[in-house]
């Protein structure tokens, strides 16, 4: 077996054999094993465990995402102004509106809240709002495209007059001005007027004819005020 054992004398061979027989079966009290040495219970069924863990994570993430969604998607906030918390109180239909495509959103809003005449088209702004964003471009377009009362209805839930030019409704001021003013007014007014929900009087505040926009619940950092 050992090709290099040719020169080992018999005494040495006997000594080696004796040593081997004594030591091969020897045992010594071993230390306690470290826990890290062994596989954890999760790695034991690693495939299934990972699958279940991933599913649980997805469920939790989905629940958190759903909870974080703004409840009210009625009126968009073109400038990302602070969310009117009062919208929450009327969120049941608003939540449904979130699910509605933009084209249907107006209908839902119209059903919920009557909009005074000569109100600008806030629908697109609303739809933007439903996404938690305000699209200035859309607001401009909305302002330039007068539409009925549907948008006004949002004023119940949104107390912030948003689009000044839209408020004129009848007149479609230049988009640039509209945009600028629209940008300015809601921002300026959004902050202080955030609160009260569904106060009919609130509707009348913009008796100037300014439309109101429903602001999303989610508030961008800094309140969006300028």
């Amino acid at each position: 077996m050992k090709d290099d054992n040719l020169h080992t004398n018999p005494a040495d061979a006997e000594f080696d054999a004796h040593c081997r027989s004594l030591l091969q079966g020897r045992t010594v009290a071993a230390p306690d094993p470290q826990a890290a040495m062994f596989a954890s219970e999760t790695t034991a069924g690693s495939g299934r465990g990972l699958f279940y863990a991933g599913g649980a994570i997805l469920l939790v993430a989905g629940a958190i995402w759903w909870a974080a969604l703004p409840p009210d998607q009625d009126l968009p906030n073109a400038l990302g102004s602070p969310v009117i918390e009062s919208e929450v109180e009327s969120t049941t239909p608003a939540l449904e509106e979130q699910m509605l495509p933009a084209s249907r959103l107006d209908d839902a809003v119209a059903d919920e809240v009557p909009v005074p005449a000569a109100e600008p088209v806030v629908e697109k702004v609303e739809s933007a709002d439903s996404r938690g964003e305000v699209d200035v471009q859309e607001r401009s377009l909305a302002a330039s495209a007068p539409e009925p009362d549907e948008t006004r209805g949002e004023s119940e839930t949104v107390d912030v007059p948003v689009v000044e030019p839209a408020s004129t409704g009848m007149d479609a001021p230049p988009e640039s001005e509209t945009g600028g003013a629209a940008l300015a007014s809601p921002i300026e007014k959004a902050g202080p007027e955030v609160p009260d929900v569904a106060v009919p009087e609130e509707k009348t505040e913009p008796t100037e004819g300014k439309p109101r926009l429903t602001l999303p619940l989610t508030m961008p950092s800094g309140g969006g005020q300028r």
Binding site: A30, A39, S46
Partner: peptide
């Protein structure tokens, strides 16, 4: 199969012999 119990049993059975070797 990376079953912790099997690993612990293996350690319990052979650790004495292998520790003597390590010594």
């Amino acid at each position: 199969a990376q079953r912790p119990n099997a690993q612990r049993n293996l350690y319990a059975r052979f650790s004495g012999q292998l520790f003597a070797t390590a010594m």
